[in-house]
């Protein structure tokens, strides 16, 4: 059952992105920024977490889930270490994802040459 929920919710979030691309001519870079920021705000308001609880990876794998993670991290850090958490929370929560992305990108750049489309 959780697979079906992940499939449907994840799919719907992507369809929202697709409609934005086709209708507003937003570039993919802007879509990425928009979705992370939106996820962070929704997460801050406590609206996104219930969706993650319901759909699991269907809500945490799309980029709003990444934004939600940032909001969650900030809140946790503030609870633990006070005002300093405002500065550290976002980076702490997203550290694993960002480090994995840039390190593996760097390794790929060592291995592969640019390819044609």
């Amino acid at each position: 059952m959780d697979y079906i929920k992940a499939f449907v919710v994840g799919g719907i979030i992507c369809v929202i992105g697709q409609i934005l691309i086709d209708k507003t001519k937003l570039t993919s870079a802007r879509i990425l920024v928009l979705f992370v920021v939106l996820g962070c705000i929704l997460g801050g308001l406590g609206i996104y977490q219930p969706l993650v609880d319901f759909a699991g990876a269907g809500a945490s794998v799309p980029l709003p889930g990444f934004g939600n993670l940032l909001a969650k991290g900030v809140k946790q850090e503030i609870d633990q270490s006070g005002a300093l958490g405002i500065l550290t929370g976002g980076f702490k929560a997203s550290a694993a994802g960002i480090s994995a992305a840039i390190v593996s990108a760097f390794i790929m750049s060592l291995i592969f040459d640019p390819k044609e489309k």
Binding site: C14, S28, I31, I102, M108
Partner: peptide, 24 residues
């Protein structure tokens, strides 16, 4: 389209593709 841009894999693609493209 957005099906592979919006998931976190799309973020990864947006990091690796310029890294490979601009290695020259």
């Amino acid at each position: 389209g957005a099906g592979s841009i919006v998931p976190i894999t799309g973020f990864s693609n947006s990091v690796t593709s310029p890294a490979v493209e601009f290695k020259k």
